[in-house]
C-alpha cells in the first residue's frame, strides 16, 4: 500500500474483480494518481449495494478509499464513464478484457504513471465508440510498450546496427526488434516478418492515432502484425495471455 494517508481520493479504472469473503470483492484498479492499487469493495455482491454498479470491470470511476488493515477499502464510488457498449457485445468484452489484461500483467503496485492511465482510458473509450478494433489494439500495444520501456526497435537491425532496408526481414523478441536478413538468418529465435507488416508496425509506432487509423492494411498483413506483436508481448510477460484464447474460442464458434 503506497502513500501514508489514511484516506485517498483517486480516479481509477477497474481492471478486474474477484469474489472475496461472504459478499465482498477484491478490485484491481489502475488509478491516475497512484498507479495500480488493490482495494476491497465491501458488500458489493449484495443486490442492494450502492456501490456495485459503479465497480464493474472497465468502468472509469471516482473513488474514496480508506486505509484498511492490509488493503484499501472502497468507501464511495461514482461512475465517470461506464463505457456501456463494451458490455453488450461478446467481441467487445473480449477486446476490452485484452486491453485490461495486458496492463494488469505488465504493471506492479509501484506508483503512478499518468500517461499509462490516460492511454488506458482513451483506448477503452475508442473501443466503446466502435473504432476498428485492429487499429485500436495494435496502437495500444505499441504505446504501452513505449511507456513501459519495452519499445521494440523497428528501424535498425538489433544485430549489426545497420539501417533496415525495405525488404523482408526477421523479428526477434529476444533481441528486442528487427534483424536484417543477414543477421536474422543466423538467429534461431527470430521469425520472418514481411516488408509490409514491418512497414505498418513502424507506421503505428511513430504516428499519431489518427494517422495510424488512416492506413489501409490488407487482412493477411493485419494477421501477421498481430502474431508478431503477440510473440513479442508473451516473450516479455514470460507466460501466455488468457484473453487471446478466449477471443478465438468466441469467434470460432460463431454459428454462421
Amino acid at each position: 500500500m503506497p502513500s501514508s494517508e489514511r484516506t485517498l481520493r483517486v480516479e481509477a479504472i477497474v481492471l478486474r474483480h474477484n469474489d472475496w469473503g461472504e459478499a465482498d470483492r477484491l478490485l484491481t484498479l489502475y488509478t491516475r494518481e497512484e498507479g495500480k492499487l488493490r482495494a476491497i469493495a465491501k458488500g458489493v455482491r449484495r443486490l442492494r449495494s450502492r456501490k456495485a454498479g459503479h465497480l464493474e470491470p472497465f468502468t472509469r470511476v471516482k473513488l474514496m478509499l480508506a486505509r484498511g488493515r492490509d488493503l484499501w477499502i472502497v468507501t464511495q464510488a461514482e461512475t465517470l464513464a461506464a463505457y456501456l457498449s463494451l458490455r453488450d457485445d461478446l467481441e467487445r468484452i473480449a477486446h476490452a478484457s485484452y486491453v485490461v489484461e495486458l496492463l494488469d500483467r505488465f504493471t506492479y503496485e509501484e506508483g503512478g504513471n499518468r500517461a499509462l492511465f490516460d492511454l488506458l482510458a482513451v483506448t477503452l473509450q475508442r473501443l466503446n465508440e466502435g473504432h476498428p478494433s485492429f487499429t485500436v489494439l495494435r496502437y495500444y500495444e505499441l504505446r504501452l510498450l513505449d511507456l513501459l520501456g519495452f519499445r521494440p526497435e523497428l528501424f535498425r537491425c538489433v544485430g549489426c546496427g545497420e539501417e533496415i532496408q525495405p525488404v523482408d526481414q526477421f523479428f526477434s523478441p529476444l533481441l528486442g526488434g528487427v534483424l536484417c536478413p543477414r543477421c536474422g538468418g543466423q538467429d534461431t529465435s527470430a521469425r520472418p516478418v514481411s516488408v509490409n507488416a514491418l512497414r505498418f508496425l513502424r507506421h503505428f509506432q511513430r504516428s499519431s492515432y489518427a494517422e495510424a487509423g488512416r492506413a489501409v492494411i490488407p487482412l493477411p498483413v493485419q494477421q501477421e502484425m498481430e502474431t508478431r506483436m503477440q510473440d513479442y508481448l508473451t516473450y516479455y510477460l514470460e507466460r501466455g495471455l488468457n484473453t487471446p484464447g478466449f477471443l478465438r474460442a468466441v469467434r470460432r464458434r460463431n454459428p454462421d
Binding site: 474483480h17 457485445d89 461478446l90 454459428p255 454462421d256
Partner: peptide, 17 residues
C-alpha cells in the same frame, strides 16, 4: 456482472439459429 453478461451473450449467440 460483466462475466454474467458475457456468458449470456455467448449462449444467445450459440442459440441464435
Amino acid at each position: 456482472s460483466m462475466e454474467g453478461d458475457a456468458t449470456a451473450l455467448y449462449i444467445q449467440q450459440q442459440l441464435a439459429n
